[in-house]
Amino acid sequence: MDTKDDATTAWIRRYHPSGDSTARLICFPHAGGSASFFHPVSVRFSPDTDVIALQYPGRQDRRREPCIEDIGTLADQLAEEIQALSDKPTVFFGHSMGAVLAFETAFRLEQRGLNSPHTVLASGRRAPSTVRDEQVHTRDDRGIISELKLLNGTDSAVFGNDELLSLALPAIRGDYRAIETYAGEPGRRVRCPLTVLTGDNDPRTTLDEAHAWQEHTEGAFRVEVFSGGHFFLADHQDEVNKVIAEALDAARAARTAASP
């Protein structure tokens, strides 16, 4: 079943739907994150761009649904949702766990020849070919909260609100289990260009681990380094938006060039 250009579904959130958009930006949230994280991105790029923020099960209005605790299974489902969209020049943007999901989803869509992105923007995540023994998902609640504070990716008001924490922690734990048990398929590459965005003080991604993404594309590759930690994009919104805008412009130009 096709998903209309102005439709919002359980998986697909459009905060500023527009039938006149000439390109599409699909945003993949981080572990424990939700579609609303990308509301400012939608404000910036709509209505010329169809900005879609993905909503995984287990959070916000989907909190009663079980989390999908396997990256491959979640990427399979996301690919099904995205291939039902109309055909437009598309860019994927994923942060942290979302970077891996953007990559795996792009790979699946390229294999099917349906709605694959012109470019993948992988933010705040080491390359799939790099390996770390990370076990945050096995910690108790206090241990998970310590990790969130280290990465500085959660509103500080949440930490003082037991009710909000109790609602958020199951999804956070489930997402950490998914990303920490993920093992990238050896030699897996996408054909499209790949741009990596990383913080120069990210405790979870070194510069070498960011550059290792080059092994995962047959297209153009570059790394953009920003000052800051894991959530560097909070302090560099304008610069990150510039990278996104360049990718969208390139996607539009490529479609125009390919038209008869």
Rank of each mutant, 00 (worst) to 15 (best):
D2H: 11
K4P: 10
A7Y: 00
T9M: 02
T9K: 04
A10V: 14
R14C: 06
Y15W: 11
Y15R: 01
P17N: 06
S18Q: 00
R24S: 07
L25N: 12
L25A: 09
L25Q: 13
H30T: 05
G32F: 01
S36R: 09
S36Q: 13
F38W: 10
P40D: 12
S46P: 06
D48P: 00
T49H: 04
T49G: 08
D50T: 05
V51L: 04
V51H: 04
A53Y: 02
L54C: 06
Q55W: 06
Q55H: 08
R64V: 11
R64H: 13
E65Q: 14
C67I: 12
I68L: 13
E69L: 04
T73N: 04
Q77C: 09
Q77W: 04
S86M: 06
S86D: 15
D87L: 06
D87Q: 14
V91T: 12
G94P: 01
G98S: 10
A99W: 02
A99R: 07
A102L: 02
A102C: 08
F103L: 12
F103T: 03
A106L: 09
E110C: 07
E110W: 00
L114I: 15
L114A: 15
L121E: 06
L121N: 05
A122M: 09
S129T: 14
S129M: 08
E134C: 00
T138H: 08
D140E: 14
E147D: 12
E147P: 09
L150E: 15
L151R: 14
L151S: 12
L151W: 07
N152Q: 15
T154K: 03
T154R: 02
S156F: 02
S156C: 03
S156H: 08
A157L: 13
F159R: 11
E163P: 10
L164Y: 06
L164K: 07
L169G: 05
L169K: 04
A171P: 10
I172R: 08
I172M: 13
G174L: 12
A178W: 07
A178C: 11
Y182T: 14
A183K: 15
A183V: 15
A183G: 09
P186C: 01
G187R: 02
G187D: 04
V190Y: 01
V190N: 02
V190A: 01
R191A: 13
P193C: 03
L194F: 01
T198M: 04
D202V: 00
D202K: 03
D202N: 08
P203F: 00
P203W: 03
P203K: 07
D208H: 00
E209G: 07
E209V: 07
Q214C: 01
E215W: 00
T217R: 04
E218D: 12
R222K: 13
R222F: 00
R222G: 12
V223R: 03
V223G: 06
F226A: 03
F231K: 08
F231I: 08
L233W: 12
A234R: 14
A234I: 11
D235R: 03
D235V: 07
H236N: 13
H236E: 09
D238T: 15
E239H: 08
N241E: 14
N241C: 11
K242A: 15
K242L: 11
V243P: 05
A245P: 07
A245T: 08
L248W: 04
R252F: 00
A253Y: 02
A254D: 09
P260D: 11
P260M: 12
